[in-house]
Amino acid sequence: MAVSLIRRLIQAIFVILAMTVIVFVGVNVIGNPVDILINPDANQAERLRVIAHYGLDQPLWKQYMLFLQGLVHGDFGNSFVYGRPALSLILERLPATLELAISALLIAIVIGLPLGLYAGLYPNRISSRLIMSGSILGFSLPTFWVGLMLIMVFAVELRWLPTNGRGATAEFLGAQWSFLTRNGLSHLLLPAFNLALFKTSLILRLTRAGVQEVLPQDYIKFARAKGLSERRIVFVHVLKNLMIPLVTIIGLEFGSLIAFSVVTESIFAWPGMGKLIIDSINLLDRPVIVAYLMMMVILFVGLNFIIDVCYTLLDPRVRLDAKA
């Protein structure tokens, strides 16, 4: 088991390296940051000074080595726009995005799992059919448009919830969090729900499919033949079997939630990484773009790694294979 973990770790590092090359080449070969860095009226000497300052006069491979070196030290250079280290700009906004993504994931699980279980256990009830139709809608509705409609209904018409920013925050573990204050929580609700919609449908449908696959199995019938209560059958025998695919999906989808928070953050003016990256793309703020992309690469590779580990812990069959 340790061997396979180490092998996966090495694979993960290779993936990260490969992505550094892609990101670096992509950003450096296409798009010329000099143009936006330098005032068009600047004279030649000024131009050269700026180019030298950012190391843009070096050969590409050398720039790449510098880039790698920077990566290891967490140094992606200063933002062209803010004039501050790109990484710290991103890290400052990380808690906001994490908070949003985690809330959305929790909402998706808390709503999707029970509804999926219900629809799977009682597929012929009208309520189950309604749930399934609703989930198709949840799949097809464009997230950003739903966000707007949520604002229209809950903020503009009903005036129940605010739509802008994080609201009041409180400190915890050295970062600011909205969910710790009442006001912050009310700000978090709409964006989190918006982001959760798509994933709720996904988890719901997966859960239902899983239930329908597990229920006809002999071991469920045998569990009934033992005289177990329906509760134990559903919550232990069925659910435990669902956990394996669900954990995989939930892990993967967490990454995708962070990526998709770009949209929700833009709509609700949520001051997270996503909003920053959109602004940076618009302004060609290269260090921030690169830092963001590398953060995401590392995040995804890390997530995949964690999922693998969880998988091993959850599925006894995999565990044995790894031992053998």
Partner: peptide, 20 residues
């Protein structure tokens, strides 16, 4: 069930829950 009437199934590979 299980207390006064019990049952044994045909395929032992399928009768036990693989994850418990």
């Amino acid at each position: 069930r299980g207390k006064r009437i019990a049952m044994v199934f045909q395929d032992p590979m399928m009768t036990l829950n693989p994850v418990l």
